[in-house]
Simulated assay, not measured.
Amino acid sequence: MTATVTPINNLTIPSGWHRLTPLWQGGEEVIQQGLPHTQLAPTWQLLLLGDGSPTRHLQLLTGEPTEVDVIDMSLIGMDLDGAPDLIQAVPGPRLRRQVWLRTASGQRLAYATSWWEGSHVDEYLQNRSLPIWASLARLRTELYRDVQGIYSGNSKALELGFNETGPFWGRHYLFWHHGQPLTLIYEVFSPYLTKYLGSMQLSSINGKV
């Protein structure tokens, strides 16, 4: 699993970060129950609502190494940054990290923003261009992925970045380590993944089968 840092250009280096404009969103109760298959197909729910590593899942789906383009590492201090409210669980001053997750052949599969306590980020991201999963696995860090929000929505920047039309599905979650919040992560997945996961929704007829 490798990573690169992309050069600065208007498409990949945002002044802020790419939050979806939600058409629909759900919280912890919806996540625990799961969604109707006519709203989100079971395969997509495994990706979005499960507590496994998306970087690892993408590698297994595509059969290619998952590579990471780091597009932003910004110290944001105590600013709430337009992030989900859970950002307040991450001690400040904070650092924001943004990445594209893509195949080795260059296909972008997901976008992610994460917020870290700035003074401790180097403990966990010793190589900041590696995927979070790879960095923490090297450290044998025990983690709990606590999915707290799920969205379906639009973003012009992500349409350009993925070269796919919306709406897109995304989520946010906290990583817990030793009973303390380690980082808040916001992820959005490309509709290109229908190639591997199938349709995002099942028809009512298929949903009954």
Score class of each variant (00 low, 15 high):
residue 46 L to P: 00
residue 49 L to T: 05
residue 26 G to L: 01
residue 63 G to Q: 11
residue 41 A to Y: 06
residue 60 L to M: 08
residue 60 L to I: 05
residue 37 H to L: 13
residue 26 G to I: 14
residue 42 P to T: 05
residue 45 Q to C: 02
residue 44 W to T: 03
residue 62 T to L: 12
residue 43 T to Q: 13
residue 24 W to M: 06
residue 45 Q to E: 14
residue 37 H to Y: 15
residue 25 Q to N: 06
residue 38 T to W: 01
residue 45 Q to A: 02
residue 33 Q to H: 13
residue 39 Q to M: 15
residue 45 Q to Y: 14
residue 25 Q to C: 07
residue 60 L to F: 03
residue 56 R to D: 13
residue 65 P to C: 04
residue 37 H to R: 15
residue 49 L to F: 08
residue 32 Q to A: 15
residue 42 P to C: 08
residue 47 L to S: 11
residue 59 Q to E: 12
residue 57 H to K: 11
residue 52 G to I: 02
residue 58 L to V: 10
residue 39 Q to H: 11
residue 25 Q to G: 01
residue 26 G to Y: 08
residue 41 A to S: 15
residue 62 T to D: 00
residue 45 Q to I: 05
residue 28 E to N: 03
residue 66 T to G: 04
residue 62 T to K: 07
residue 41 A to D: 04
residue 60 L to A: 11
residue 50 G to N: 04
residue 26 G to W: 07
residue 62 T to E: 07
residue 26 G to N: 09
residue 36 P to S: 09
residue 30 V to K: 09
residue 46 L to A: 13
residue 46 L to C: 09
residue 40 L to C: 14
residue 62 T to P: 03
residue 51 D to N: 14
residue 50 G to H: 07
residue 27 G to W: 12
residue 55 T to F: 10
residue 52 G to R: 11
residue 45 Q to F: 14
residue 61 L to H: 12
residue 39 Q to S: 12
residue 45 Q to D: 09
residue 56 R to P: 03
residue 61 L to F: 13
residue 63 G to S: 01
residue 29 E to C: 00
residue 48 L to G: 08
residue 49 L to C: 10
residue 26 G to T: 13
residue 65 P to S: 11
residue 29 E to F: 00
residue 34 G to T: 09
residue 38 T to F: 11
residue 53 S to W: 08
residue 32 Q to D: 07
residue 31 I to R: 07
residue 41 A to R: 03
residue 34 G to A: 11
residue 26 G to D: 06
residue 60 L to G: 01
residue 48 L to I: 15
residue 26 G to S: 05
residue 47 L to W: 10
residue 25 Q to E: 07
residue 38 T to C: 09
residue 55 T to A: 13
residue 42 P to G: 04
residue 27 G to S: 14
residue 36 P to K: 05
residue 53 S to R: 05
residue 32 Q to F: 01
residue 58 L to H: 06
residue 50 G to T: 00
residue 41 A to K: 01
